[in-house]
Computed example of a mutant assay.
Amino acid sequence: MRIAVFVILLLAVLSGCNQAAKNGVSSSPGSNPNGQIQVKQTAPQKKQITDPQAVARHLEQLADSVPQVEGANCVVFGNTAVVGINVPPDVDRAHVGTIKYSVAEALRKDPYGADAIVTADMDLAQRIKNVRDQTMNGKPISGFAQELGAIIGRIVPQMPRDTSNPPPNPKLGDPNL
């Protein structure tokens, strides 16, 4: 009788060890031995930009095709595109946001425009146009540097404590006297 109980316990332990080796996961085509499931990437990969000017023209055409966009300018640096759009001046701010969203949605569906940056700010759109024009004229670095300097000049505030007192004008007399 003891031998039968011993044999049953031994079989139970051995069958339990057999299940532990599988770690509770059945072998299937999409899994690996660690129990992790591997999935293939299904989202389209962003295309590498080899001809920036052609991509810029293409993205401009996409943005221009959106209703109420009066014009678009695009600059491509590396693998990033910045698109400035012009909208009618009488459009209210909320509707401008809707137009900008529509342009972003149109660009998202394009492999080159998926990571583009869209702005409807009139000043930035003009500066993007200036950079684009300089790039088309064969001066991409100097055009970009000039406009970047102008943009930073608008962003950086003028702090009152950073101003200095002008030297007194001897003809007018010292105002502190």
Rank of each mutant, 00 (worst) to 15 (best):
A72D: 00
K46E: 08
V131Q: 05
L14F: 02
P168R: 12
K46L: 10
D174F: 14
G149H: 10
M1R: 03
P157A: 10
I85E: 02
P175N: 02
E70L: 06
A12H: 01
Q48R: 10
K109C: 01
I8G: 01
I37A: 09
N165L: 10
R57E: 14
E147D: 11
P111G: 11
P111F: 12
S27M: 07
A43C: 01
D133Y: 01
K109Y: 01
A120S: 02
A43E: 05
T50L: 10
I151W: 09
V75P: 03
A81V: 09
V103R: 05
N18Q: 14
A72Q: 00
D123V: 12
V25K: 06
A94H: 00
C74H: 07
Q61W: 00
D121E: 06
I155V: 15
K47N: 04
R108K: 08
S15F: 14
Q53A: 14
L148P: 00
R2K: 15
G71S: 14
G16M: 13
G97Y: 11
P88N: 13
V82S: 15
G24R: 00
P29N: 05
D92T: 07
Q61A: 08
R132N: 12
A145S: 04
D115C: 00
A116C: 04
K47M: 10
K47G: 03
P67D: 12
L124K: 08
M1G: 08
R93S: 10
F77T: 13
K100I: 03
P67T: 10
M1K: 01
K109E: 06
M136Q: 15
A20H: 04
D121M: 04
A81G: 11
D123G: 13
G97H: 09
Q146L: 08
C74L: 11
N18H: 15
I8S: 04
G71E: 13
M122T: 14
P111T: 13
C74Y: 06
V118H: 07
N32H: 10
F6Y: 04
R161E: 11
R127A: 04
P88L: 09
P170E: 12
V131H: 10
P33V: 12
G149W: 06
M159A: 07
C74K: 03
K40E: 15
V83T: 07
K46N: 06
A150V: 05
I85W: 03
V87C: 12
D51Q: 15
N130I: 08
G78A: 00
A81N: 08
T119S: 04
A56P: 11
D174Q: 15
M136T: 11
A20I: 08
I128A: 00
N169P: 12
N18I: 15
Q134R: 15
N86E: 00
N165I: 05
